[in-house]
Write a protein that binds this DNA or RNA. Structure first.
Lengths: 340, 340
DNA sequence: CTGAAAGCGCTTACAG
DNA sequence: CTGAAAGCGCTTACAG
């Protein structure tokens, strides 16, 4: 490994000077700057990041915590984050933990170990994050929370407008004449799922639809659970005329279940989802859903982190950004006009 | 930030002693070990990773390079890698670059900057990686290559048995009576796609099927391209009786195209894919495909890295591991018996 | 068993 | 404009 003193020796200057040209300091004579620059090139010298980190207390790396599940969902977000961050010369250190306790330990290690400059957290099933936020706040590194509601002072929280979009979906179904709309929940602990459910509940109230408990069933965001939930729902009495699945994967399972039950979608049963994953356009019938701009979400997270990185901790504000979502009308809801 | 000397001061010992208890050195008296341990706990002390890295020349982080595309595919692999690595106290630094040149620069920075201890690369469209491998070999960090064939001495290469599985799929279709099997290619530069194509070509030769060029069309691994490719194929004369798509997303697009063309799958047209993504079981009809164990792939990559990390560079061997794949028979091929 | 000291590879105030 | 020196937070041979 070539070090700064190798360069210094070869260029017959001090390491301080090499350091200065490395950092584009203006107080270095052009002639020596060029000479040293040559040697740096020649030796293919890259400064040691650990030494830099130790000195500057900045590592140019952002920690990224994400849950173990829903790989697809998070992958897209990560790509969005990564693209923006790497353009700005920052790296991503990822970690995916199973439970909260492990998560707290990881974060604590990252932050107190000086491994990261900022943190982006996606943990939709967060519960009590007081204990989690404390080390972060104390250490004053910027934090972005994606899809979880935690009281986090001076952090940026990025939220999808699940609630209004879900309500709007109920509205749409109601407009199509449905009175008995079932909901397949994504999981009691998932933030997005809970918000979508809340929108559903308020929507059916607002549009004066049936409100019985038999219209609700809990899945876990997988196709299999959507399938099973639909079988269950259709055995109940009275049957729903429409099913609103909290995500597309479950909606896909629901469509398959309808097929097995010999029900026509949307004639016998309307089915709608949420997320607009790439195959939603290729189900039969095409799935009516809500588009979630995952990469953009990632991009926004990266932007926020970068902005706060260059800010004095005392100047950082508590931001909550709610991203409006677009309904995508296809055939599975029975609507005449498609939006795509 | 609390440092080792804060601990030392409070425990009334030298930093050397604190360091020793931190590293479980045996030459420290139990009494002092316990006392220092208490203080460490009390102060919630975590050693600074940059200082550690500078000293030990180990960062306990593994670099992970992956392409910009196919988020789903890679996300699962990453989860597999991460699970195993994090259990062994290692982190993952990710980077996804757009072109090779950028990739080489990134890798060079990671390695020469002392940022990583090992590297896992997924770049299915790698071409010439001589220039890329050189800094790695010189720096003697272990390397795992996933799904790309590069001549990389002392590296571990993890490959899917695309070739044989594709051939087997052709065999299966041939057994079902198909003579004219079309292939939707995944992209000229993608390793997996090329291997699957090779298996297809050799398979149709081996089973004496039609070999005309009109049976081939190039997609790009998306549903949309599978859809479009199928429309194209079915306009040709003579039409294929079966379509083998190089991945499931394209097969899903193909099924949709068949539907639009009012063709029954599998009666008028058999369709098979590759990957066995989670929704493949929920297409109509269920998609016959080849299961790719993504998490296992990730796990194997992590294992290899970890093994080589603890090995003298001179002892490292060049390994090529080919993972056999399992065919998954569902309805879309027209077979009577399903395997799942 | 424990401490003083040197060193890992950088940066930066200080002096010149 | 440039260099000597101290320091970032650790580890580890060396001496005791």
């Amino acid at each position: 490994m070539t070090t700064i003193s190798d360069v210094a020796k070869k260029a017959k200057v001090s390491t301080a000077t090499v350091s200065r040209v490395l950092n584009n300091s203006d107080k270095v004579r052009p002639a020596t700057r060029d000479r040293v620059g040559e040697i740096i090139k020649e030796l293919n010298f890259v400064p040691n990041v650990n030494a830099l980190g130790l000195q500057r207390k900045k590592t140019k790396t952002i920690g990224l915590i994400f849950p173990d599940a829903s790989a697809y969902y998070f992958a897209e977000i990560i790509q969005g984050i990564n693209r923006h961050l790497s353009q700005n010369d920052h790296q991503i250190l990822i970690s995916s933990a199973h439970d909260e306790e492990e998560e707290i330990k990881t974060i604590n290690g990252f932050v107190k170990g000086g491994r990261i400059d900022g943190l982006i957290m996606m943990m939709p099933s967060a519960s009590d994050y007081k204990g989690l936020m404390i080390p972060l706040i104390n250490n004053k590194i910027p934090v972005v929370l994606i899809a979880c509601e935690i009281d986090a002072p001076r952090a940026t929280t990025l939220l999808l407008d699940n609630y209004n979009s879900a309500k709007e979906m109920v509205h749409h179904l109601s407009d199509l004449g449905h009175k008995r709309i079932a909901f397949i929940h994504g999981g009691k602990h998932n933030y997005d799922a809970k918000e979508r459910y809340r929108g559903y509940v308020d929507g059916r109230k607002e549009f004066q639809l049936e409100e019985r408990e038999e219209l609700e069933v809990v899945g876990n965001f997988t196709e299999a659970s959507g399938y099973q939930s639909t079988i269950t729902l259709m055995q109940r009495n009275p049957r729903p005329t429409a099913i609103f699945a909290a995500n597309d994967a479950m909606a896909i399972g629901a469509i398959e279940a309808a097929r097995v039950l010999k029900l026509s979608v949307p004639l016998d049963l309307a089915i709608v989802g949420f997320d607009d994953i790439s195959s939603a356009a290729y189900t039969d019938p095409g799935l009516t859903t809500v588009h979630v701009p995952l990469r953009r979400l990632g991009h926004l997270a990266a932007e926020s982190i970068l902005k706060n990185l260059n800010m004095d901790p005392s100047e950082r504000t508590t931001e909550k950004i709610i991203i409006p979502l677009q309904q995508v009308i296809r055939k599975s809801c029975g609507s005449k006009q498609e939006s795509v």
